[in-house]
């Protein structure tokens, strides 16, 4: 009995400790970025309809994302809220804490639908699982928009980054940095996730088709793990000491490659081109150690998704696929107004 109480005390004290830490980390101004809204518990949106029953003249758009906590999703949310204000709709924004929790997302979807939204915007984890639910929703006149990973054929419009296009943009810039000639190694982050595959394929296609003097000598994968990506990079340099440029397909791969280059003492010899952003990447780009990177436009994604939903509600015509855009950023433009809000720590 005594032991059980002890164990319980232990757990409670750990939790208390952690909550304390979390608040402490939120108070830390250096960790905040201007465009990032304060963290809110994920359950809150579900309560909102009850809070403002009087304002239900506004059409209600329920957005459900792949994830919630990552800054990417918070930026999407920011864009969506901007659009909601502009077009006069009410939105809720939810997502499971991990991008694998299919069942949680389904719960969220069902809850949202029971609140009779005018439109639903969804980035589905499992398209198959949501298809029947969406069919049912559409039969009740609810409009369906997909964003990011989309939600299959039921979507009347799909808003996301065209990763092939984004990778091609990276390739253009890489070619420019190499002045049309040289050897490239690629550090990817996944061979199974479609976005990741497209970020490599789009890059390779562009180089092969348009820059005959540039050779891609090696493609390896580091799971987006910073440490593994560093080791992968160092192995690649050992195998091909004459590599001129390394292209990486996400933040983990990029920072990993950066560390690998740094440890190998080759930061000055090899050009590094990345994808996405983080505090470490921003700093390295600012001082020129990373040549530049591609960023998606999550704010634009959120905005365009709500915009598409509003148009559908009003019965206007909407394109089937909406590219929400991407940008090349480097030391020269990263502080500009249209770029800075898209970069996160």
């Amino acid at each position: 009995m005594k032991k059980r109480i002890l164990a319980l005390l232990l757990i409670v004290s750990i939790l208390a400790f952690v909550v304390g830490c979390q608040q402490a980390s939120q108070d830390q101004p250096s960790q905040e970025t201007p465009q990032k809204p304060a963290e809110e518990p994920a359950q809150e949106p579900a309560e909102e309809p009850a809070q403002e029953p009087s304002s239900d003249e506004k059409p209600y758009v329920a957005m459900i994302a792949l994830g919630y906590g990552h800054q990417f999703w918070q930026a999407v949310r920011q864009g969506a809220e901007n659009a909601a204000e502009e077009f006069g709709v009410r939105i809720t924004f939810e997502g499971p804490e991990e991008e694998t929790m299919v069942d949680k997302q389904l719960d969220m979807l069902n809850t949202a639908l029971s609140n009779n939204p005018a439109a639903i915007a969804l980035a589905a984890i499992d398209v198959e699982a949501v298809t029947p639910i969406l069919k049912d929703a559409k039969s009740k006149g609810i409009r369906v928009v997909g964003f990011d990973s989309g939600c299959g054929d039921e979507a009347e419009s799909h808003c996301s980054t065209d990763n092939l296009q984004a990778a091609a943009l990276a390739a253009e810039n890489a070619a420019r940095l190499l002045e049309g000639k040289g050897k490239i190694g690629i550090v990817g982050h996944s061979q199974t996730v479609i976005d990741a595959v497209q970020r490599v394929d789009g890059f390779v296609e562009k180089i092969k088709n348009e820059y005959p003097d540039i050779e891609i000598v090696d493609i390896q994968y580091g799971d987006g793990d910073h440490l593994k990506s560093a080791e992968v990079t160092k192995g690649m340099l050992q195998a091909h000491p004459d590599i001129d440029l390394i292209y990486t397909s996400n933040e983990g791969a990029c920072v990993g490659a950066y560390n690998g280059l740094k440890e190998a003492g080759k930061l000055n010899e090899v050009i590094l081109v990345g994808f996405d952003s983080s505090a470490a990447m921003k700093e390295a780009i600012r001082n020129g150690e990373i040549a530049g990177a591609i960023t998606q436009d999550p704010v634009g994604m959120g905005y365009k998704t709500v915009e598409a939903a509003v148009k559908l509600i009003k019965g206007e015509k909407v394109e089937e696929f909406i590219d929400t855009g991407c940008y090349w950023y480097d030391a020269s433009n990263m502080d500009e107004d249209h770029i800075a809000p898209l970069l996160y720590d």
């Binding site: 979390q22 906590g69 700093e283």
Partner: peptide
């Protein structure tokens, strides 16, 4: 599972830098 969760909660799912 506990430490995996706590790491994310404590950090706010952002890398913590030692700069």
């Amino acid at each position: 599972m506990i430490t995996k969760g706590l790491s994310l909660v404590v950090s706010g799912i952002k890398p913590i830098y030692f700069t």
